[in-house]
Simulated scan of single mutants.
Amino acid sequence: MANTKSSLSKASVVTDFKEITKMGLSISVVFSALAGYLLSAETINYTTLILLALGGYFMVGASNAYNQIIERDLDALMDRTKNRPIPAGRMSVNTAFIIATSFTVLGIITLYIINPKTAMWGAISIFLYTSVYTPLKTKTPLAVFVGALPGAIPFMLGWVAARNGFGIEAGTLFAIQFFWQFPHFWAIGWFLYEDYEKGGFFMLPTGKPDKGTAVQIIVYCIWTVVVSIIPVLGFTGDLKLSIVGAILVFMLGMLMLIFAMRLFQQRTAKAAKQLMLSSVFYITMLQIIYVADKFLR
């Protein structure tokens, strides 16, 4: 019986650690950073790849832990978040703070070993997410714009890790992920609207799931697709995209746009969820296509 309790408590600790650092989200961010590195690297350094993966995970894990410390009282009000480690009482604020600060230090050190500019962008990301985006979420819908800044850093972070510099290429990768986040997060804000309302969060541009929000989602889907195929024109330095790659990305974008149009027509939580899933599919496949296009060209 004691052994069963012990193993259950160990499993709970692991689960809570995954949740306080949002492991799933952190891994998707690491995927973006590694894709950016592979696009940039002339020769692949596997030590740098490992450091980037670790540093990226620490960076996002720290941001998420700080976020859950700051929002613990609001998290307790929402069905989606009330069972998180802190509001559910399974983890103390002190423990969460130790995890957050440890991850911050480890993340910056790990990224600094790659090069100082990578560490600098990692530190900027943590600061913006924790100190600007998180407090603004209960005050203004512009919080999504602010949150899109740190959210767009990982894709370009990989490029900076390989080149130790920020240019038109890193800026283009930043822009792709920046514009993509608006339809993605507004779709989430739409189907979780009632839950977010309980916590007092303003996540939609008009403040509610209406036609105006749906129109803005469509506009940002179009911007995302336009920015995503710009490298085919040859204006973005070493970041290139073949005609075939651009067509594939464009088709992916049209799929996402179809779901955005469907949300405009139906204005339902189900349509918003479908758009969110299509946006995740879009950014994941875009990164795979970009990398494959580089190595198959």
Score class of each variant (00 low, 15 high):
V226Q: 03
A148H: 06
F201P: 01
K22H: 03
M285L: 15
M285H: 12
I124D: 08
I20A: 06
G61D: 13
L286G: 01
T118A: 15
V13A: 10
L192D: 05
G234D: 11
D238W: 00
A269E: 14
L286Y: 13
T118F: 10
L204K: 05
L8V: 10
G89Y: 05
I222W: 13
L239C: 08
G36H: 03
D195E: 15
S40P: 10
G253T: 09
W190E: 05
A76I: 04
M78R: 06
K117H: 08
L275W: 03
L296K: 08
G107R: 00
M285R: 08
I27W: 00
K240G: 07
I153N: 03
I70C: 01
Y193S: 14
G234S: 11
T47L: 14
L296P: 02
K137S: 09
A88K: 12
T130R: 02
K10F: 15
V227M: 05
P231F: 08
A96H: 02
L34P: 01
A170N: 04
I44N: 11
H184A: 08
V280A: 13
W180C: 05
S228C: 08
Q287V: 01
L248D: 03
K10W: 14
K117P: 00
G147F: 04
A170L: 03
V215T: 10
L149K: 01
F103T: 04
V60D: 06
L157T: 07
I86P: 00
I27L: 14
Y193T: 10
I230H: 02
I168H: 00
R90Q: 07
D75G: 04
L8D: 15
T172Y: 00
I288R: 05
K294H: 01
A170Y: 01
N164A: 14
Q265T: 13
I168C: 00
I109S: 07
R297L: 06
L157W: 05
L173P: 01
Q216S: 09
L25K: 00
K137D: 07
S7A: 13
A271Y: 02
K82H: 09
L233R: 09
F31E: 05
A260P: 12
N94A: 14
K273A: 14
M251C: 14
A292P: 00
P154G: 08
K294N: 01
T140A: 12
F182W: 04
K10C: 10
P85W: 05
L149W: 07
N45K: 07
H184V: 05
R163T: 15
M254A: 11
I99G: 04
A2V: 15
W186V: 04
T268Q: 11
L25D: 02
I109Q: 02
R262W: 09
L142F: 14
D210R: 06
P183I: 03
T213V: 07
T134H: 03
T104H: 11
V280D: 13
A214G: 11
M276G: 05
I86G: 02
L51F: 13
T206I: 05
